[in-house]
């Protein structure tokens, strides 16, 4: 037995079993395609989910604001007065945290009594995440800034400066790493979240695929400087998904691009991506006036459920 163990260990070491590859065949389900679930909207964004698998999105041009779709249900109105939202997530306390881009504020909405509390005003919020500790990070795209609100203390500080157009924002399943997409650059940037909530060790960890630029020609082809990296989400296996003009791109936990899933033919673009559904198995995308979903082999996670070990254990 000892010898066998040593042999197996030797094989693993010599075979470079360092990281699991995550090809599209582990994500795409044969025969499944994009399914239209909402249309005739103005401008959809801010997709998110609750722990019953219900899906929520915002129509930034609608007076109504938010909409909800149950796993097998129809589109219904959700909350009142919650208009102009460009990014939102449920917190661990059941409250909804949202960026109101036009109103230039970040708010906390109590879904039970529809009470809206302003956490930050005179800001330029685009999208946000909130950790199990109540650390809220939001992107301020025009200010090239990521801002941190400690929702426990109310303290607001600049967490990062310098990304061209910080836009989408997400967490690793264990909530130790924060990732921000760049709408006007080629990278998604990784940060380590420190115990006090500050961000450290910024790195251009992921490089997005971009459209070619045939008008410039060198030894190698030129690509456009950005692919409009927008909303982001993670799945239970630690993949990072980002909405781009080429489709939903995803990266494995060590930052290697592993798949590009083009959106449906004829859409104007994809503003964001998230998982929802009874088993969190549906990828949802907001595409300007339309919202689509597609059944996948993977499953999303909810940051409000707290840190997850990943990749998850095999189910019996």
């Amino acid at each position: 037995m000892d010898r066998l163990t040593i042999t197996l260990a030797g094989i693993l070491l010599t075979n470079f079993a360092f990281t699991q590859d995550m090809p599209l065949s582990q994500v795409l389900m044969p025969g499944e395609d994009w399914e239209l679930i909402s249309h005739q909207n103005g401008f959809t964004d801010a997709p998110t989910a609750d722990n019953k698998g219900n899906f929520y999105f915002s129509d930034m041009q609608s007076d109504q604001g938010l909409f909800k779709i149950a796993p097998q249900g129809k589109v219904i109105h959700y909350l009142k007065r919650a208009t102009g939202i460009s990014g939102m997530k449920f917190g661990p306390n059941g409250k909804l945290y949202a960026c109101r881009a036009k109103a230039r504020e970040v708010v906390e909405i109590n879904p039970i009594n529809n009470e809206i509390k302003v956490l930050a005003n005179d800001v330029r919020p685009n999208d946000l995440v909130i950790t199990h500790k109540g650390y809220l990070y939001f992107t301020e795209t025009p200010k090239k800034q990521v801002t941190f609100i400690n929702t426990k203390t109310g303290k607001i500080i600049v967490a990062d400066k310098g990304i061209n157009a910080p836009n989408g924002i997400c967490l690793s399943p264990d909530q130790g790493t924060l990732v921000v997409s760049d709408f006007k650059g080629k990278h998604c940037w990784a940060f380590r979240i420190e115990t006090d909530g500050t961000l450290q060790y910024k790195q251009p960890y992921m490089t997005m695929r971009r459209k070619p630029d045939p008008t410039k020609h060198g030894i190698l082809p030129n690509f456009q400087s950005s692919c409009k990296g927008d909303g982001m989400i993670t799945d239970a296996y630690g993949r990072y998904f980002v909405a781009t003009e080429l489709g939903v791109q995803y990266f494995d936990p060590i930052g290697r691009i592993s798949g590009v899933i083009p959106g449906p033919i004829g859409i104007k673009g994809i503003t964001s991506v998230t998982f929802a559904g009874r088993n969190m198995e549906y990828m949802h995308i907001t595409c300007f006036d339309k919202v689509y979903r597609m059944k996948t082999k993977t499953r999303g996670i909810l940051y409000q459920d707290g840190p997850q070990n990943y990749p998850p254990k095999l189910q019996k």
């Binding site: 909530q175 130790g176 960890y205 936990p253 060590i254 930052g255 290697r256």
Partner: peptide, 20 residues
């Protein structure tokens, strides 16, 4: 590797970033 800030979270592995 960039070690985790807290126990229970994973390090950021830098091998692919450095080598590839």
């Amino acid at each position: 590797i960039i070690p985790p800030a807290e126990l229970g979270t994973q390090p950021r592995k830098n091998r692919a970033f450095e080598y590839d």
